[in-house]
């Protein structure tokens, strides 16, 4: 009789409990009605059960989003934990939807649930992937855009983990700037 490896019998608890949200692009309903929480989880095994069960980001319809946020934080600017924050934003071109989007999103999820941002993990609220015909977007949301050093460290870790080449820069925008932007893009508060 073989004794199973106890590592495989226990679920591995995460530092935080996380919720996956799905935004459906249904123009007959208002924005809030289209945003639904899929489920929340707090173990590695439950994360994979969920991840393996849902469509990859590249296969959801244009106009839709996935978000993964710490349980209790809603994936919107208005949430108390987001409203003074901002996002590290990665813009992807059409070719990258097939080549890189899914691996970027999975890597981002692994950074969140594995607490890869270390001391800055408390600054991180969640991540969003927006599927759009004009170009997909992936972002990490932090809760305080005035925390310069912590914000920079989150950006550097993200760029490093996604293997983004040195000569490509990514920018951080405060939600307050995005909300009040005059043109099509908000100014970058930081770049890495």
């Amino acid at each position: 009789v073989s004794i199973p490896d106890p590592e495989l019998l226990i679920k591995h608890p995460l530092h935080n409990r996380w919720a996956l949200w799905y935004f459906k692009n249904d123009k007959t309903k208002d924005w809030h009605a289209n945003l639904k929480v899929v489920t929340a989880f707090d173990t590695v095994e439950d994360f994979w059960a969920l991840y393996n069960h849902v469509l990859p980001a590249s296969k959801i319809a244009p106009g839709c989003d996935y978000s993964l946020f710490k349980d209790g934080i809603q994936p919107m600017w208005e949430d108390e934990r987001n409203k003074r924050g901002g996002r590290w934003l990665i813009n992807l071109n059409k070719r990258q939807r097939n080549m890189e989007l899914d691996s970027f999103w999975l890597e981002t999820l692994l950074c969140l649930i594995g607490e890869a941002f270390e001391e800055q993990s408390d600054d991180v609220c969640g991540a969003v992937v927006n599927i759009r015909n004009k170009g997909d977007k992936l972002s990490i949301w932090t809760h305080d855009a005035t925390r310069n050093e912590a914000t920079m460290r989150v950006g550097r870790t993200l760029k490093d983990r996604l293997n983004i080449p040195r000569d490509i820069t990514i920018g951080f925008q405060a939600h307050s700037d995005t909300m009040t932007k005059a043109g099509s893009t908000a100014k970058n508060r930081f770049v890495v």
């Binding site: 679920k11 591995h12 995460l14 590695v44 095994e45 994979w48 393996n52 692994l110 594995g114 993990s121």
Partner: peptide, 20 residues
């Protein structure tokens, strides 16, 4: 302390406990 997992460990568990 913070419960941290590196990517290799997380990936290793992707199909490990499907029956749980």
């Amino acid at each position: 302390g913070k419960k941290q997992y590196d990517r290799a460990f997380l990936l290793q568990l992707q199909f490990a406990n499907e029956s749980l």
